[in-house]
Nucleic acid binder design. Structure first.
Length: 871
DNA sequence: ACGGGCCGCGCC
DNA sequence: AAAGGGCGCGGCCCGT
């Protein structure tokens, strides 16, 4: 496909979708469509190597080349390809590969059928139909050919593939892949244990430039066609192909519409069919994948070698050295973790699904019944539709950003006819039917709007309407008691709510009746009506939160597409973020509900196998410690050195009156009960100065993200001036942080990049021509990236340290998952305590047994039978 | 019927 | 006018 420069630019208007009508999806890799930044223009960009779903309308002139010409150029490859379609030939070749040609570097690539890469894990899914191996133009791998193409489909299936085991499994034979994870898994489905991993060109490309997500993506095609990437490729002979050509360019056909005319949709036959019926072109297409992967590797290697690698200010070599030392082993480790997977208790999830469904129905009925008094059709409405909710509460309102647009007072919606309502004059229920929703008849004030200017109907917005009333279920009201606050790592939003709660409950007795109600109380005429409105909307909040738990977690985790034969869930762990954090997909195991809010205890479903336990270990205030180190901030470093409650200490440093109280021992910073002591000898700071500590804590979290006084003022509901004053208090003792942040902004401004602890760079190519707002965004990213990215570096080093540990390996402990500042391992229960101590040691000293940071790294670890219990 | 845009929300 | 960083994903609605 074309680079996204074109995608976002002049060509974008020519783009169209093509329908994916292949019965079995052919795939050479996993795929994802992704979203652009919230307000940014770039919308969908291919992230991983895959055939794209966006093509130029004019198929005849892609890049000025006629598809027939593409095919002709492709055919030249055929002369280089040794087609291996029988076992004895395979045996001969493998003998060569593993003896006289053992020292070469090989690029490998598979083509896979019977897998839906958007939904399924490649672990225990997919069938390899062919693969290609290439090691450069000069090696004669037989008959003077330089590229091997192996027909797995008709050349011997599993048997011919297994002939290549000595090649794939030899750790001394260096192999380069584009998205190693996918190929590794599909090959391992045949019982092979792939070894000799040498490089993943996708990771190398990300190390070279992490911002291609919005400017081209990381598909093999996009990368090998990008002159900026391939500029250093060796000059190739006339007509030689380097860049990958996508499947649809070669094999795409315009769909013929019913009337016989050519449609705009483009279809591609199943890959098995292509392999058999378009054999020559298919072989060339497939061979080109490994050829272009090797060229890409050589180009990226040359590029990375030219870059300096500076680790915490010290020259360490080239950025390719960084790749070899960190991301190569990390890439291999991630694939191992994916292979392991996490065991999930399906019976438990099924049980929770039943419970959640019942509770959701109750709450739904309650809301619908109330709303139908104002608008009858709400009985049939979809309470999960934000459009329908917006219509009810805000019908008629004008758009805040674009006053020329406004919601109609009344609107019809097409809904699934789940209630099988039969319309007048009809005999059977239709699949869909229309309902009419109009404004409930009252004006509701709101301060929360969506990015596009419409009033928000999010959970937060609805909570403001409802206030702090209970939804008052008849059956299950007291079945659910939220856990008490045992968690220190609150998000600022949660802390604001915490504040509101304090205010709400501190209001005098006679007012408490009305003060707990939200804005809907007055809107619906106070009294009984107002009260019922608030309760109904509270029920609606319940529906939303239950629904999101069901559809985001309870249901997907039970699906078979993301689990292997062993019933374990194999998510994909990707190095694909701008900052160097991991992301997890299919499913995203990094966003499982946290303990406090998790009414169905979903983390309890993640279990260890019989006889095994999980170890869950996480860093305490990792990002703040990183910030203290990077900025060399005396006050923060001291606070961490002193230990104890960091946020209390921050509050003490911000407010002189607290400082004085601590000095005079009127309050305690923290207190560990000593034997014989029942309660602290003086009040704790976190109780005596709770609101100051909350502010301090919030600033601790917010400042690293670049939050502005304007944003804080909005959250705190105070004036900007007041918010600014509090921010200044925070910075007063932390001038180094202020200075460091200014330096990062300047660095981003002048060099268009910033760096992490280990010396990775993040580019800001948009800096040169950024609007004021965009510039602000980049500046915040510039101060956040070194913090977040360095934390990611530390977490990676810790994982590598753990994976290198011989004792852990011997005891049978394996890494399963990482959630940014947390790792999860599984192993035999009998050695859990020993293993836990080793894990803590590895994480505390993640750099080959050392910690060169100016702060200690605090690690909290637990072992238990499931994830919930181990937190 | 499918995919994109949008919204909303889960996590750190 | 916008005013906290980084993700993935599901539902809805609307276009094709």
């Amino acid at each position: 496909m074309q680079s996204s420069g074109e995608l976002n630019g002049s060509l974008s208007h020519k783009l169209l979708e093509y329908s994916k009508e292949r019965p079995s999806t052919g795939a050479r890799s996993s795929e994802a469509t992704e979203r652009g930044p919230p307000n940014g223009k770039p919308s969908v960009v291919n992230d991983e190597p895959v055939e794209t779903y966006v093509v130029p309308i004019n198929l005849n002139e892609e890049n000025g080349i006629h598809p027939l010409e593409h095919r002709q150029r492709l055919e030249h490859i055929y002369d280089k390809v040794l087609v291996v379609d029988n076992i004895s030939l395979a045996r001969d070749i493998v003998r060569k590969l593993t003896t006289q040609y053992k020292g070469l570097i090989y690029a490998c690539d598979t083509e896979v059928a019977k897998i839906d890469v958007k939904k399924e894990t490649p672990v225990d899914h997919g069938e390899v139909i062919c693969f290609s191996i290439y090691s450069g133009p000069t090696s004669d791998l037989g008959n003077g050919k330089s590229c091997i193409w192996v027909d797995v489909l008709d050349g011997g299936g599993r048997d011919i593939l297994r002939e290549f085991a000595p090649f794939f499994e030899d750790p001394s034979i260096r192999k380069v892949w584009h998205n190693y994870s996918f190929d590794s898994h599909v090959l391992e489905n045949y019982g092979l244990k792939i070894s000799g991993f040498y490089a993943d060109t996708m990771h190398m490309a990300r190390l070279w430039d992490s911002s291609r997500r919005t400017s081209g993506g990381y598909s093999l095609e996009a990368l090998t066609r990008d002159p900026k990437i391939m500029s250093s490729a060796k000059k190739c002979s006339e007509g030689e192909l380097i860049g990958k050509i996508s499947m649809k360019t070669i094999f795409g056909k315009k769909k013929i519409k019913k009337d016989g005319s050519e449609g705009k949709l483009i279809t591609i036959p199943p890959v098995e069919e292509l392999q058999r019926k378009e054999r020559v072109h298919w072989i060339c297409y497939s061979a080109l994948d490994s050829i272009s992967t090797l060229k890409l590797f050589e180009s990226l290697q040359r590029k990375l070698i030219t870059e300096e690698w500076i680790l915490d200010g010290v020259y360490e070599g080239s950025r390719y050295d960084f790749y070899e030392k960190y991301w190569r082993p990390f890439g291999e480790l991630l694939v191992q973790m994916e292979t392991e997977g996490m065991l999930v208790d399906r019976a438990y999830l099924a049980e929770m699904e039943k419970l959640a469904t019942v509770e959701k129905e109750l709450a739904t009925d309650r809301f619908r019944k109330w709303a139908s008094r104002y608008c009858p059709d709400t009985i049939y409405m979809n309470v999960g539709s934000d459009a329908q909710l917006r219509q009810l509460f805000f019908g008629g309102i004008t758009n805040r950003k674009d006053p020329s647009e406004s919601l109609p007072m009344s609107r019809t919606f097409k809904i699934l006819n789940v209630d099988n309502v039969i319309e007048e004059g009809k005999k059977v229920a239709k699949k869909y039917r229309n309902i009419t929703l109009h404004n409930l008849g009252v004006e509701i004030q709101t301060e929360i709007y969506t990015a596009t200017g419409w009033p928000s109907v999010s959970g937060d917005a609805l909570k403001v309407l409802a206030g702090k009333v209970s939804a008052e279920y008849d059956l299950i009201d007291d079945a659910y008691e939220p856990l008490s606050d045992g968690n220190d790592e609150f998000t600022p939003e949660q802390m604001v709510n915490e504040d509101e709660e304090k205010q709400a409950t501190s209001i005098s007795e006679e007012n408490i009746e009305t003060s707990i109600y939200g804005t809907a109380y007055a809107a619906f005429g106070e009294g009984k009506e107002g009260k019922e409105a608030c309760q109904a909307i509270a029920a609606l909040c319940e529906v939303c939160s239950i629904d999101s738990l069901i559809s985001n977690f309870i249901l997907p985790l039970q699906g078979t597409h993301i689990s292997g034969k062993d019933d374990r869930i194999h998510c994909s762990l990707n190095i694909n973020t701008e900052t160097g954090r991991l992301s997890a997909r299919r499913p995203n195991l990094q966003n499982q509900p946290a303990l406090e809010k998790d009414r169905y205890k979903i983390r309890q479903a993640f279990i260890a196998a019989p006889g095994n336990s999980l170890i869950v270990a996480d860093y305490g205030q990792l990002e703040l410690r990183i910030l203290a180190h990077l900025a060399n901030c005396k006050s923060m470093l001291e606070a961490f050195r002193a230990g104890g409650d960091f946020h209390s200490r921050t509050a003490m440093n911000m407010y002189p009156h607290i400082h004085e109280a601590v000095e005079q021992k009127r309050v305690l910073l923290e207190w560990q009960p000593q034997p014989g002591e029942e309660k602290p000898p003086a009040p704790l700071l976190k109780d005596a100065y709770a609101s100051e500590r909350r502010k301090a804590k919030m600033l601790n979290f917010s400042i690293a993200y670049g939050k502005t006084p304007v944003g804080l003022a909005r959250d705190w509901k105070v004036s900007v001036k007041e918010a600014k004053a509090t921010v200044d208090l925070w910075y007063k003792e932390r001038q180094e942080v202020l200075k460091w942040q200014e330096e990062r902004k300047n660095e981003a401004q002048t060099t268009q990049r910033v760096h992490t602890l280990l010396g990775r760079a993040r580019h800001f190519p948009a800096m040169a021509h950024a609007s004021k707002f965009q510039r602000g965004h980049i500046e915040r990213a510039a101060i956040n990236t070194p913090v977040q990215g360095s934390a990611a570096d530390v977490a990676m080093c810790a994982m590598l340290e753990i994976s290198r540990n011989a004792q852990l390996k011997e005891l049978g402990w394996k890494l399963l998952l990482q959630v940014h500042d947390e790792v999860i391992l599984e192993g035999p229960t009998e050695s859990a305590e020993v293993a836990k101590a080793i894990v803590v040691e590895c994480m505390s000293k993640p750099f080959y047994g050392k910690n060169f940071l100016k702060v200690d790294l605090s690690v909290d670890a637990k072992c238990a039978k499931n994830w919930y219990a181990a937190k």
